[in-house]
Write a protein that binds this DNA or RNA. Structure first.
Lengths: 280, 280
DNA sequence: CGAAGTATTGACGGGCGTCAATATCAGTGG
DNA sequence: CCACTGATATTGACGCCCGTCAATACTTCG
């Protein structure tokens, strides 16, 4: 927890840099087991909460008193279906607010898909901010809409595309909301933050199929598998066309514009909150 | 608009009754071809808009100046995927507001799944109401959340359930937001408002499979097929368990509580709007 | 080096999408 | 009243994608 307050008051850059750095030295899952055995809270100072992979953020009916602001990391909204089958229904990305009007019925829960850093806000406070600041309200509405759009995409993809098409689309879109290092020759290296089971459960397929498809794509020289967590995308055009991605960002990611749009507004008083914390 | 003002200012009963009545004399699709050949505007007086089945409500990028209040009928949000394959991503039910922050990218559009009666509201007006009336704002938020929950259910169902399970779940849930006549012996007759292609495209399967499953369910004495648009549900327990519906309304419908929750608020100034119209 | 976790590859089988044929029904005109 | 037409619903036959199960390779940490 030490020294992390600084990052809060500064811009988002450090967080992104940290994310990228983490992911670069191996897929983030392997980083998970540092201190605690598996999926426990790593640090909790004041309003901040740092989580390891697979730790639970929200569950159950009772709407908690808090909403959570995602400072870094990726969360997954999931549901354990009958027979222990899990399905990942949505991802939440840095800069997003979760838990505002979430019911989480039907065995749904929110867990960390990567190590995460969250920021707690009392729902009452948040409401106050919301009513006071029209810009923030608009921003929040836009964010809700974006999450809805992403879910629309996922629903469509699961229903209308075959597993190979879904995975191709996901890889293409992932370049916008996961660490992606473009190279001089037009290719680029994608750092896949999600584990194989997470990918499989998100795209409603199996790890075996995911593995088969990635290797098939490698044979087709569309991608290159550097290691299980790093894909070099050789032919983005082809990848996008297989995944029926309209080139014009299809709705899922749009996290690229994150820094300039929502973060500015939300981070501003995330910083304010930190100051309050210091004062108290 | 003549005389319809009365219905507006009164309760919702007339609308529901009309819906039920329509559906009872044959599935609403057959009612579609009255005056206009196929899917055209049937009536458009002032702020009100009556549509036949399959007519288009919204499409394209450009956010229209209006939001629409659904007075009666069912709308479908759909997307034509590559290769002409259609997918129904969501249904909108009476009492709901659509078109507020809708992008409708990627070939998505909103069409009438049954004859519909809509009510137009200028987005500016609506915003004004929204900021003035906190209750309305809360109501609107709740509605958005509900649509999100429904989409979550659909995503889960398509990803985690087999076609027969999905259809069973849909039938069970449909009793809550489609005309359903409970009988003395515990059974009940469901008037299916959607056409076979709509059901199939919503559940991400085919009309053939839908047909096979309904008849299989009939063999199992879970339902009874009165005619293609009317199913008598013999064993609701069984139906719900096949569809993995938690008995405790799973999120999709909850349109039963419609009358007391949202309608009261929204209908109130739907009436106000009508009055304004008269004044102008 | 052994053990555990994760990723990959192989073999098998069934569910369900696809295509085609047939059934059912409403409406029309003779 | 019946043949004809078109829309919709149903039934049958076929094939293959992909989920399932099992075995193996790879990596990391004791």
């Amino acid at each position: 927890m030490k020294h992390q307050m600084n990052a809060t008051t500064s811009t988002l850059q450090p967080d992104l840099a940290a994310l990228r750095g983490l992911s670069n030295r191996y897929g983030l899952e392997s980083v998970g087991n540092l201190s605690q055995p598996n999926g426990k809270v790593r640090a909790c100072a004041g309003r901040q909460l740092d989580l390891d992979t697979d730790s639970e953020v929200m569950t159950g009916e009772g709407a908690s008193r808090y909403v959570w602001f995602i400072r870094s990391g990726v969360l997954r909204l999931q549901r354990y279906g009958y027979g222990g089958r899990r399905q990942v229904l949505s991802l939440s990305l840095p800069g997003e607010i979760i838990g505002y009007e979430t019911h989480l019925r039907n065995g749904m829960s929110i867990e960390a898909a990567t190590p995460c850093s969250l920021f707690r806000i009392e729902k009452r406070e948040f409401d106050a901010f919301l009513t006071d600041d029209p810009d923030l309200r608009a921003e929040f509405l836009r964010q809700q809409q974006q999450q809805y759009d992403r879910l629309l995409w996922l629903t469509w993809a699961i229903g209308a595309l075959r597993p190979d098409e879904r995975l191709s689309a996901f890889l293409a879109l992932a370049t916008r909301f996961m660490p992606y290092q473009p190279l001089a020759d037009g290719t680029g290296v994608l750092s896949m933050l999600l584990s194989r089971p997470d990918i499989a459960d998100l795209l409603s397929t199996t790890v075996e199929t995911v593995s088969r498809i990635t290797h098939r794509l490698a044979e087709m020289h569309v991608i290159e598998i550097e290691d299980p967590a790093h894909f070099r995308i050789l032919d983005m055009k082809k990848l996008a066309s297989i995944g029926r991605v309209d080139e014009s960002l299809a709705g899922f990611p749009e996290c690229s514009g994150m820094q300039k749009n929502r973060i500015n507004t939300l981070m501003r008083w995330a910083a304010d909150q930190s100051d309050c914390l210091c004062a108290s």
